[in-house]
């Protein structure tokens, strides 16, 4: 498995990277955990590969006014090791621990994974549930796209050809919110047959905030808007079960050799129920 030939350069600056991103036949690489396998199978045959993994502007996890900001080229490993994230968004570590494997997490980046937009990857569910905001940058400028408007299909996003994903803003969780990620893995790849991220805040016994992101189930990871109907209700067993059913209502589920559509829908209901239950349990 040998890639087709290409040229390789390391971007010297973000400006340099943005210039390259706008060039035809160019692919950017950071951790390479999504791109290199594509190159090996010659499913991607760029003429130039520009490395942006080392750029300091794309690294790191910082506290900002509205939330926690993660540089797109931050590795999964660094997400796991971040005390700040453990405090502000523990769901990131909970989810990341199940992404790929140890070696892939050491090298793979959150931005690379999100931009690759594999419909069975875990992180999309989380950024959807957290209502994250993604910064897309090009030579033309910078714009913010909510995660809930970012995923457009399998391996398709709202990114324009000349744009780079540079950072991910995770807004602070609502007061007293609990979070949880529940997934069922495909045994060979470890990707999610279904993965569900949930955020639930409870006050005085009633739900004050509820958000659910679902990956693996459909051809695009999605935000299950129906979860908002939990607001004002008591998060008991029956209500959460009903919410889980509502979350996948009408979804056209993926079907492949690993799981039928029917089974995926069933797993999704189970995962939503469990994620909501755990998140509600952690709330307060």
């Amino acid at each position: 498995m040998i890639p087709a030939a290409f040229e390789y350069t390391r971007a010297r600056s973000l400006a340099d990277a943005l210039k390259a991103a706008g060039t035809r036949g160019t692919k950017v690489i950071a951790g390479g955990q999504s791109l290199v396998p594509l190159l090996r199978f010659r499913l991607a045959q760029p003429s130039v590969v520009v490395d942006i993994g080392h750029l300091p502007q794309l690294q790191g996890i910082k506290r900002a006014k509205q939330g926690t900001v993660i540089g797109a080229a931050t590795t999964y490993r660094d997400l796991l090791d971040s005390k700040l994230l453990h405090n502000t968004h523990p769901i990131i570590a909970e989810t990341t621990a199940g992404i790929g494997d140890r070696q892939v997490r050491n090298r793979g980046t959150i931005g690379g994974g999100l931009a690759h937009a594999d419909p069975a990857s875990d992180m999309p569910a989380v950024v959807l549930a957290l209502d994250a905001v993604l910064t897309l940058q090009s030579r033309r400028g910078k714009r913010s796209v909510p995660a809930r408007k970012f995923f457009k299909g399998p391996f398709a996003t709202a990114m324009k050809k000349d744009e780079l994903l540079t950072e991910i803003l995770l807004p602070f969780l609502p007061q007293g919110a609990g979070t949880a990620y529940e997934s069922f893995e495909q045994a060979a790849s470890g990707y999610a047959l279904v993965g569900v991220a949930a955020v639930v805040a409870v006050s005085g016994g009633a739900v004050t905030h509820a958000a659910v992101g679902i990956t693996g189930l459909a051809d695009t990871p999605f935000f299950a808007a129906s979860a908002a109907k939990l607001i004002g209700r008591t998060p008991n067993k029956e209500i959460l079960r009903a919410a889980a059913a509502a979350a996948v209502e009408g979804v056209s589920a993926n079907e492949d050799i690993h799981a039928s559509a029917e089974y995926r829908l069933h797993l999704a209901r189970v995962a939503v129920r469990k994620a909501l239950t755990t998140a509600a349990g952690r709330a307060g």
Binding site: G32, V49, Q103
Partner: peptide, 23 residues
């Protein structure tokens, strides 16, 4: 050829990585 098996694991700056998925 899909970064699954780990037989190619080396340490890069002390971190375990799959050397089949690094240029």
């Amino acid at each position: 050829d899909t970064s699954q098996c780990g037989a190619c694991t080396v340490l890069l700056d002390g971190r375990a990585v799959k050397s089949c998925s690094v240029l």
